[in-house]
């Protein structure tokens, strides 16, 4: 039997299943309400460990309950429940800016860990021909800017708008370690240029307007960032 175009469900089936789901979402007492809430709570704790400990007692349970009752998750994959939670936090839950930053940062760590991109091993050697070298960014790299030092254990309770920005690159190395690297202004300018262009010739990087560095300094920067795994240096064919 081959499928025809999808039929509508019988009306009684629709009303009965809707009623069950609504009861679960509204946390009417049932095993399902508890199981689902526990599932979401578990994802929150595992995926966002620092966020969970930064919240006031009871707040995590509240977020799990509100997620169930208010959020329509569109992604079937279980590793995307964390993504749905971040979307929900943006749209439907009152969280302070530092907490949202922390949630997003932990989501980026997760997302980077399972990013489907393949990462090349560093290819620089003593024989590198810099005239034909092309520099690209690690394909898993994300640039993150936060109004406080995200690497500190404690985050501020609130922000007053006068904070400086901290900029980081989060990426996965060829050995699958997820790294958060603090970026200086020079780092950021060079990485932003590489990111915008996709791939940049070494000579173009040397003549890039945002930063004035000597050729040797840029070369040293490329070597260091290549060893760190943040940029990939290949040779033009």
């Amino acid at each position: 039997m081959r499928a025809q175009s999808e039929a509508h469900a019988p009306s009684r089936m629709v009303s009965e299943t809707d009623e069950l789901c609504q009861k679960i979402r509204r946390r009417k007492p049932s095993i399902y309400s508890e199981l689902l809430r526990e599932n979401i709570l578990e994802v929150l704790k595992c995926s966002f460990p620092r966020f969970g400990t930064a919240l006031a007692p009871g707040k995590l349970d509240e977020i799990a309950s509100h997620f169930l009752s208010r959020h329509g998750a569109k992604r079937p994959q279980f590793h995307h429940i964390a993504t749905e939670i971040v979307e929900f936090a943006h749209r439907g839950h009152e969280l302070s800016k530092p907490l949202i930053c922390l949630l997003e940062y932990e989501w980026i760590l997760l997302s980077t860990e399972i990013d489907s991109a393949r990462i090349q091993a560093p290819q620089l050697s003593g024989n590198t021909n810099w005239d034909t070298s092309k520099i690209s960014l690690n394909p898993t790299a994300e640039i993150v800017a936060t109004p406080f030092d995200i690497t500190l254990v404690d985050i501020p309770v609130e922000l007053d708008g006068t904070e400086q920005n901290y900029v980081y690159a989060v990426y996965r190395t060829v050995k699958h370690t997820v790294v958060t690297r603090s970026l200086s202004y020079v780092d950021y300018c060079l990485i932003d240029l590489i990111r915008r262009e996709g791939e940049v010739a070494f000579n173009a990087l040397v003549s890039a307007p945002p930063v004035q560095l000597t050729t040797d300094a840029i070369r040293q920067w490329v070597i260091e960032q290549s060893q760190n795994g943040l940029v990939i240096c290949g040779t033009e064919c």
Binding site: T17, L20, R25, Y32, L35, A73, F78, E84
Partner: peptide
Amino acid sequence: DSSGYLYDLL
């Protein structure tokens, strides 16, 4: 349901 995924088997 019509709102979205619930991540359990009903």
